[in-house]
């Protein structure tokens, strides 16, 4: 499923070069905190809020892959969240929202609303 197909409005966040490859950064999108990641497989955006630690920190996690799934590890208690779905690998009943991201003319654009779960 292409989650970008149904996006109504995009918000311009920053230049693609503002986020160092292999790291993440926090951004505000329509009043919500979003964690934006620049990976070898492109850009991803999840909610910045870590439900396990009750803190806005996911942008500061290390990205990578576990068993073929692209993930970010919470910097607090190290749970892994899938970059595509937001689902926690350690506890599938927990997930964080996912935002569609695209890059246009060297700018990172994020959908104004998270994708429907």
């Amino acid at each position: 499923m292409n989650i970008k197909a149904n996006v109504v409005g995009w918000e311009d966040i920053c230049a693609a070069t503002d986020i160092v490859r292999g790291t993440g950064a926090a951004a505000r999108v329509s009043g919500m905190q979003v964690a934006v990641f620049h990976t070898d497989d492109g850009f991803f955006a999840l909610g910045n809020y870590d439900p396990f630690s009750d803190a806005n920190v996911l942008a500061r996690g290390i990205v990578g892959d576990i068993g073929g799934k692209l993930v970010v590890a919470s910097p607090v208690y190290k749970q892994h969240f899938c970059l595509h779905t937001g689902i926690c690998l350690e506890d599938m009943s927990v997930s964080v929202p996912v935002w569609p991201v695209t890059v246009r003319d060297g700018r990172i654009l994020i959908a104004a609303q998270p994708a429907a779960a």
Binding site: V20, T23, D54, A55, R60
Partner: peptide
């Protein structure tokens, strides 16, 4: 350095110790 930054745990990335509230 950009090639090392993404490898660091948050403590090393921000050169400080992360606490429970972020």
């Amino acid at each position: 350095k950009p090639e090392h930054a993404g490898l660091q745990d948050t403590n090393d990335y921000f050169l400080a110790n992360l606490q429970k509230d972020g």
